[in-house]
Design a protein around this nucleic acid. Sequence first.
DNA 1: TAGATTGTTAATCGATTAACAATC
DNA 2: TAGATTGTTAATCGATTAACAATC
Lengths: 215, 215
Amino acid sequence: MENTKHVSKAVISRLPRYYRMLRRLAEEKVKRISSKDLAAQMGLTASQIRQDLSCFGGFGQQGYGYNVDKLIVELECIFGVASSQRAVLLGAGNLGRALLRNFDFSFCGVRPIAAFDTEEDLVGRTFRGIPVCALYELELICGREHPDIAVLCVPGDQVQALAARLVRCGVRGIWNFSSVSLREDDLGVPVENVHFSDSLMRLCYHMKEAGAPQE
Amino acid sequence: MENTKHVSKAVISRLPRYYRMLRRLAEEKVKRISSKDLAAQMGLTASQIRQDLSCFGGFGQQGYGYNVDKLIVELECIFGVASSQRAVLLGAGNLGRALLRNFDFSFCGVRPIAAFDTEEDLVGRTFRGIPVCALYELELICGREHPDIAVLCVPGDQVQALAARLVRCGVRGIWNFSSVSLREDDLGVPVENVHFSDSLMRLCYHMKEAGAPQE
DNA sequence: TAGATTGTTAATCGATTAACAATC
DNA sequence: TAGATTGTTAATCGATTAACAATC
């Protein structure tokens, strides 16, 4: 029903930022906020915030602003946070383990249920209560547990084949940390590629720009 | 000199993707590529690629396309990859260690020189040859080594103060993996915030969209 | 009631695409 | 020379900002 209007990519990439800021405000016991104040805190315009939110409904109130807790719930609804997606993690190397141990999956409404690796020494161990299983058990365990999301932390050369295998296992979304990009068009399910190097290169670019003018 | 035209944010965020793709093509021994072929492989339009690159100069040749190796060098120039930035890493927890061990800093022309932590058991250890130092030595070591970039992998509540301290130590850019966003306007140096949760929430959004229509 | 602030419409601005002369 | 493909200009498209009536 909220699917009628097309929501642009730009809007979608701002929504998680709104959500983070609102969760922080809620923690600080802020009960209400105007688009004006929210904009100031986030470095955006009030107009843009109202425009973005109005894609999904009228969540505010004239003369009052937005109720922080209510808006959080609305955003969780938009993202499906409440529906608690189940995730499997592929590759329990340094990065995979760092995610299992440190990343707050529940913030996004995601719950890791198992990790997989080919490394003998890792299989059987658990990290924050999540067991590492042997990769050959993937089909078996997915058939039983029906995970929604696969988190890929494996070397780049294995990613393409593994992603296809996971889609056959029924996962409906892929969160890809490997160095090789995956494409939704190839796989048939939504993909988010996380490329650390892109971010670091952008930083280097901006540093170069910041350095150049005055010197 | 390439600083005359203003280059939009959208262009800057595509440049690292071009660079990754070209590096991959170079590995596969591809010597030349047209904007048309590059666009097809990346899911963009040829026009956009030519427009983007022309912000920085005429790197192609009519009737031929782009020389892959030459274009790689041009992009490295744009990002300052060749100048080899030196980085310190703050917080040698799971994520910090995962970066030190796995992430290919040199791909971006960055070289980690030291890590810092307050944890006694970590101080003195090395990861991939990078020593973990005590945090109280930060000013001393920065005074001696003049790092360009700080990589922040510390808990959210410490980030703001630590970032300011690093800027006083002379770092010119901050790569922030903590859950709290930093802003260039507050710090006076370029910042890249990496928010895993934003990416995962976007994935959840797209999964919800993909699921809704047919069912 | 008066003040504040929304949701929405219209105006502006910027980014992407299309077209094509230039030229390898 | 003919074919291919660039860099750039103009046209289109979309996203952001400004303005304001509606209303809490």
